[in-house]
C-alpha cells in the first residue's frame, strides 16, 4: 500500500514536471505557429465592426463598417457610417494589391502600396496591423518568458516594417494574444493593443481590440459583432465587381 502511494506520488511529480518541461520545450516558432492557427484558421469570415475613436480630451467618434475575409489575404472592408464615409470601400488582395472605391468618384482606384505607411482610415491601426498575413510569415519570434497564464514572445520583423519589435502576451490556453506592445526603431514603446476574445462557432474571435497610440494619447476600439465563420465566401466575393456594388 505504502509502495503504491509512493508510486502514485512519483508519477504525479513526473507528469507535472513533464508537462512544465513540455510547455517550456515548445519553441517560439511552434508557439507563434499555434497563434497563427488560432487567429487564421477559419476559411472565411463575415462581420460588422464598430470603431470608436477617442482623442486625448476624451472626445469620441464612431464609425461602422462591414468586413468580409477569405483566408489570410483577401479582404473587403466597407464603411456604413458616418455619412461622410459611408460607401467607401477597400479591397485587399494577395501581393499587396489594394483598391479603394470612393462613391463620389464612381470608380475604383488602385492604391499605392505606400498607403500602408499610414494609419487605416484615421484609426490607430496601421495597414500593417490590419493585415491578416500570418505572424510567422512576417516576424522572427523569440520566447522571452513563460508566465502563469501567458507566453511572452518578442517578434522581430523579417522585412521592412514600422516597428523594431512587437512584444506579445499570448494566452497559454487558447494561444490568442491578450496584448501586444509595439516598439519603434529607437526602441520606444509607441502603441499597445489589448484583445478581448470570445469563441464563435468553434473559432476564437477578437470581439474587441483596443489600440492605443501612446505618442498621441489617442485610442481606437474595434468591436466585432454579427461574426459568421465559414459561410462559403468565394474568390468572386473579392473582386472589383463586388467592390463597386
Amino acid at each position: 500500500m505504502k509502495n503504491s502511494k509512493i508510486q502514485t506520488a512519483v508519477l504525479t511529480v513526473l507528469i507535472t514536471v513533464g508537462s512544465i518541461f513540455s510547455a517550456n520545450a515548445q519553441d517560439a516558432n511552434t508557439i507563434l505557429k499555434k497563434m497563427d492557427d488560432v487567429m487564421y484558421s477559419p476559411k472565411d469570415m463575415t462581420g460588422k465592426q464598430k470603431i470608436i475613436l477617442t482623442d486625448k480630451n476624451g472626445k469620441q467618434e464612431t464609425r461602422e463598417a462591414t468586413m468580409q475575409q477569405k483566408g489570410t489575404d483577401k479582404r473587403m472592408f466597407r464603411f456604413t457610417s458616418p455619412a461622410s464615409l459611408a460607401g467607401i470601400a477597400v479591397l485587399s488582395l494577395p501581393n499587396d494589391i489594394m483598391y479603394l472605391y470612393l462613391p463620389a468618384f464612381g470608380k475604383e482606384r488602385r492604391i499605392a502600396t505606400s498607403a500602408k505607411n499610414q494609419n487605416f482610415a484615421g484609426t490607430d491601426f496601421s495597414y500593417d496591423d490590419m493585415e491578416s498575413k500570418a505572424y510567422s510569415e512576417k516576424y522572427i519570434p523569440k520566447l522571452l518568458k513563460t508566465e502563469a497564464n501567458v507566453f511572452v514572445i518578442e517578434l522581430t520583423p523579417k522585412s521592412k516594417s514600422d516597428y523594431s519589435k512587437i512584444i506579445v502576451n499570448m494566452n497559454k490556453t487558447n494561444y490568442y494574444p491578450e496584448s501586444m506592445e509595439y516598439y519603434d526603431k529607437g526602441g520606444n514603446k509607441i502603441k499597445e493593443a489589448k484583445y478581448t476574445v470570445k469563441k464563435v462557432s468553434n473559432y476564437w474571435n477578437a470581439e474587441l481590440v483596443e489600440m492605443t497610440d501612446l505618442k498621441k494619447n489617442h485610442k481606437t476600439k474595434m468591436q466585432m459583432y454579427d461574426v459568421k465563420y465559414d459561410t462559403g465566401l468565394t474568390d468572386d466575393d473579392f473582386t472589383i465587381r463586388k467592390l463597386k456594388e
Partner: peptide
C-alpha cells in the same frame, strides 16, 4: 494601366 512599384502608385 495602373500599378504600384516600390510603394509608388503609377498610372
Amino acid at each position: 494601366l495602373a500599378t504600384s512599384i516600390a510603394g509608388i502608385g503609377f498610372w
